[in-house]
Every structure is written in structure tokens, then in C-alpha cells.
Amino acid sequence: MANSDTDSTAEPTTELDDDAMAQFPVPAFDDLPADLRERIAEETEEAGFTPNVFSAFAYKPSHFRAFFAFHDALVEDTALEREEIEMIVVAVSGVNHCYYCNVAHGALVRIYAEDPHLADQLVANYRTADINDAHRTMLDVAVKLTERPTEVGPADLEALREAGFSEEAIWDIGAVTAYYNMERVIE
């Protein structure tokens, strides 16, 4: 995460965190290509800190560009509501023990779902969270895909269809789940 001045009114500083990855070096912000510096600075300004995933992917600029282009496609060209995407991220991150993602995406669940308690329920145990049956089915499949991907089959897809998800939404559930499982492996 980026360090910011102790003055709470100061703008956040764009700085890459050396602890973002344990096995590969994190480059200095000033050494990055201009397009990466611009994207990181925008995200830092919006979030108030530099998310670790930006520091991690800065190691390889071509992968950074592809990773964030895929992220943008997942949230912009989707049959899912944004709150559903964030619910998947939180459930998958809970399984993967990614505290960082649970906090960051939990905040987004609170915003998009307009529910101050939902993210905490999802982190604690999505199976007992106050969600509808369709969302529980969605998260059941996402978590199964995370924990036991070889066991996901036609019955799971049919359960999603019966819950009211379109073929495109089913694709998007799988794509969001896969993306956030990959992100956890990289960090």
C-alpha cells in the first residue's frame, strides 16, 4: 500500500509497496512506463492508497496491461450486477484467505449492495448470509469452482439456470471467479 503524509488532508502519495510480492522485485514507480504510472496514479487518487495488486503486476508491464484490461472487461461488459461481482470476489477471497481482498471488495459490496452488513456476513460464512437463493447458488458455484474445480459440472450450470442466470451471466460468474483466484496466486 502507498504511504501517505501524516496530514489527513494531504493527497495520497503514489508509491509501490515492496511487500506486494515475496518472490519478485517490485519496480520503482518512476521506472514504470507512462501508461502504468498514469493508471496507478488514478487508482491511488481514487482509493487513497495504492492497491497491492498494482505493485505486484508492475513487475511485468505487458501482464499488468492485460490483467487490468481483463478486469475492466469483467466489470464493464457483464450480465451481472456490480454487487454480484463483488459478492463473488468476497466469497472467493474468503476461501483463499485473502484479507486484503475481503477488506477492499467488502467495502465495494457495502456500496453496491447498499447493505452495511452484507460483506461481513459473506466473509464470515456466505452460506448463512442474508442473501436470496439465486445469490446463494451463484456463490455455491463460485466457491466450488475455487475449492474443487474438477467437480464443477453440468448440474452446477443447470442450478444457475434454474436460479435465473442467463448463459452470459453463468459465463461471467466463472470468469470473475477464475480472475480473482488468479489474482490471489500472483500476489
Rank of each mutant, 00 (worst) to 15 (best):
L145V: 01
S4P: 02
A113W: 01
C101H: 07
E168W: 09
C101A: 07
V90S: 02
V75G: 00
I88D: 00
E46S: 13
I85Y: 02
A58G: 03
R82Y: 06
P25N: 09
L160V: 04
N96E: 15
R127D: 06
M1N: 09
I111M: 14
E46P: 01
Y100Q: 04
S8M: 09
A159T: 08
H63W: 10
E11T: 11
Y99C: 06
I173M: 04
A34D: 14
I170K: 02
A124W: 09
V143C: 08
Y126I: 13
H135A: 14
D18T: 12
I85V: 05
A69D: 13
M87H: 05
E43M: 13
N181M: 13
A28R: 14
L157A: 10
G174I: 15
F165E: 07
E167T: 05
A142E: 02
D72Q: 14
A142F: 02
D120Q: 11
Y100G: 01
A107S: 13
M1R: 08
I170Y: 04
A119E: 07
L122S: 01
R65L: 07
V92P: 00
Y180F: 11
D7H: 12
L108Q: 08
P154T: 15
A56F: 02
A134I: 02
N132L: 12
N102E: 15
S166M: 05
E83D: 14
E183I: 15
R39M: 11
L139Q: 02
